[in-house]
Every structure is written in structure tokens, then in C-alpha cells.
Amino acid sequence: MADLDLDALRQQIKEAMVEELMLPQGADEIASDAAIFSPEGLGLDSVDALQLAVALEKRFGLKLADAAAAREVLRSVDTIAAAIQAK
């Protein structure tokens, strides 16, 4: 059951990313472990990071205390999902 909830949460995060950041790929094309800011991953930038942080707080109530916390949490969909589950 927990795995199903985690999969659903990952999907919701991906959908939020596509919608909020107007990504060219669909949610199903984003790997849960893809590096969000790496050129090999999604290649997002600092403006995207800010938009993503605001979207995650609005949709999931996830508050990122500071830049260091944001760097840790916003590494991948998996790390975002773990932070949402831990809050």
C-alpha cells in the first residue's frame, strides 16, 4: 500500500513539474531518479527551482527552509517525494 501511495505521489510531483514549469516532456517521460538540475537530467535552472519550490509548497505544503535544504530536496522526484512524506 505504501509503495502505491509513493508511486501516486511521484506522479503528482511530475505532473506539477510539467504544469508549473511548462516542461516540453510529459510527466510519464520524467524518471523518478533523474537529476532535476543536471544537463543529463531535466536541465532546469535557478528560476525553475524557485517556481518549483513555490509549487511544492502550494500543492503539498512542503516548506524549504533555506538554499541548502532546497539543494538536498530538489535533487530528483524521489528526494522531493521523500521530503513530502517526512513532513
Rank of each mutant, 00 (worst) to 15 (best):
I36N: 01
Q11F: 05
G41P: 05
Q11K: 09
V73A: 08
D28W: 03
M22E: 14
D5G: 02
L74W: 02
A34G: 08
K63A: 06
A35N: 08
D66T: 09
L56Q: 00
L42G: 02
K63E: 10
A8K: 08
L64F: 01
K58W: 00
G61Q: 01
I80R: 04
D3C: 05
D3Q: 15
Q25R: 15
L6M: 13
E40Q: 15
E72Y: 10
A35H: 12
L21Y: 04
G41R: 04
A53G: 09
A8V: 10
A49C: 13
A83W: 03
A86F: 07
L50I: 14
S38V: 07
Q12T: 03
G61K: 00
G61I: 00
A68P: 03
Q25V: 14
G26H: 13
Q85K: 13
D7E: 15
P24G: 07
I80D: 04
A27F: 06
I36Q: 00
L9H: 03
L62P: 00
L42V: 09
V47Q: 12
D48C: 14
L74A: 09
L64E: 00
L50G: 10
V73L: 09
A27K: 02
E29T: 10
L4F: 11
S38D: 15
A34Y: 06
A81R: 04
D66K: 07
L64R: 00
A16S: 13
A8S: 10
D78S: 15
M1N: 11
I30N: 01
Q51N: 14
L52R: 05
A55G: 01
A49H: 09
F37L: 05
E29M: 09
L56H: 00
R71N: 14
I84N: 11
A82P: 08
L4G: 07
V77W: 07
R10L: 02
D66H: 09
K63S: 06
V47C: 08
R10W: 03
D33I: 01
S46T: 14
A70I: 09
D48M: 08
G26W: 11
F37S: 04
L64D: 00
K87W: 07
L62V: 01
D33R: 09
L42T: 08
I30T: 05
L52P: 02
D5M: 05
A8P: 01
V73G: 03
D3F: 11
L21P: 02
T79L: 14
K87I: 05
A31M: 07
L56V: 00
K63T: 06
V47W: 06
L42M: 15
Q25I: 11
K58M: 01
D3I: 11
D66F: 10
A31I: 02
I30C: 03
E20S: 14
I13E: 02
E19W: 08
E29P: 04
A69L: 05
A2D: 14
P39R: 10
A65R: 12
D3W: 11
E20R: 15
L21V: 03
A35D: 11
A69F: 05
A83K: 05
V47M: 15
G43L: 11
